[in-house]
Simulated scan of single mutants.
Amino acid sequence: TVEYGPRKFALTPRSHLQKLQDEIEAKLCHGVLVKIDKAQDKYPESIVTDDDLKEISGSKSFLIDRQTVRYLSLLPLRKRSVYCEKISKSIALSRFSRDMNQSIDLLTIAEQNPNLPDKRKSELRYKRESLKDSIDMTLSLHRERNEPLNRVMAQISSEGRRFQDRANARALDLDSAGASSGRVRATLFDCSDQLLCNLEKN
């Protein structure tokens, strides 16, 4: 096991990946999307902050954008839940790969320290090789179960656009029906006919 930051207990690659998944799902699915739902009339893009995206992505290099979050928020709750879990796992896998590469790099640099005794270098080499094997096994297992991040984002965008188009069509139908109703009422209750005009006022 290798420690990632100041923690009391060392994390295995598998437990580190699970921790990332839990954190991302909590922030995105139960944090950002709930915030969008509560805002209701506001545009989702104006509600999601850079800090939100940074916290989900784990760095300033965002792994998810506002538009994807917006499309995710447009989905029906059941479908949204499925896709939110999928993208959380895919983001976690991307962050995991980045974290593990950094850990391998640190061990490699430490191993190359000319001031270290040979025994210590051997220990670091063994630790690095063991970590790499564990990382490869974890990545192989989870890549079989999870789709690549860009594919999940494309699926969310496609589904989100479809539901947005439906919502827009319904809104246009309502506007059209309202305008048509207004024209009919204006025709039927023409105040040139005092009787009909009085009926409308009553």
Rank of each mutant, 00 (worst) to 15 (best):
P76G: 04
P76W: 06
P76F: 05
R78M: 12
R78L: 15
K79I: 14
K79A: 13
R80V: 02
V82T: 12
V82C: 08
Y83D: 02
C84P: 04
C84T: 05
E85N: 15
K86A: 13
K86G: 02
I87H: 03
I87A: 03
S88Y: 06
S88E: 00
S88M: 10
S88A: 09
K89P: 05
K89L: 07
S90T: 04
I91R: 01
I91A: 10
A92C: 02
A92N: 04
A92L: 08
L93G: 01
L93Y: 02
S94V: 07
S94D: 09
S94E: 14
S94I: 09
S94F: 07
R95K: 11
R95S: 02
F96A: 05
F96H: 02
F96G: 03
F96E: 03
S97I: 10
S97L: 11
R98F: 09
R98W: 09
R98T: 12
D99V: 01
D99W: 05
D99F: 05
M100V: 05
N101G: 13
Q102H: 12
S103I: 15
S103W: 06
T108E: 08
A110S: 09
A110W: 07
E111M: 14
E111P: 03
Q112S: 15
Q112F: 08
N113L: 05
N113F: 00
P114D: 03
L116P: 01
P117A: 08
D118M: 14
K119Q: 11
K119V: 11
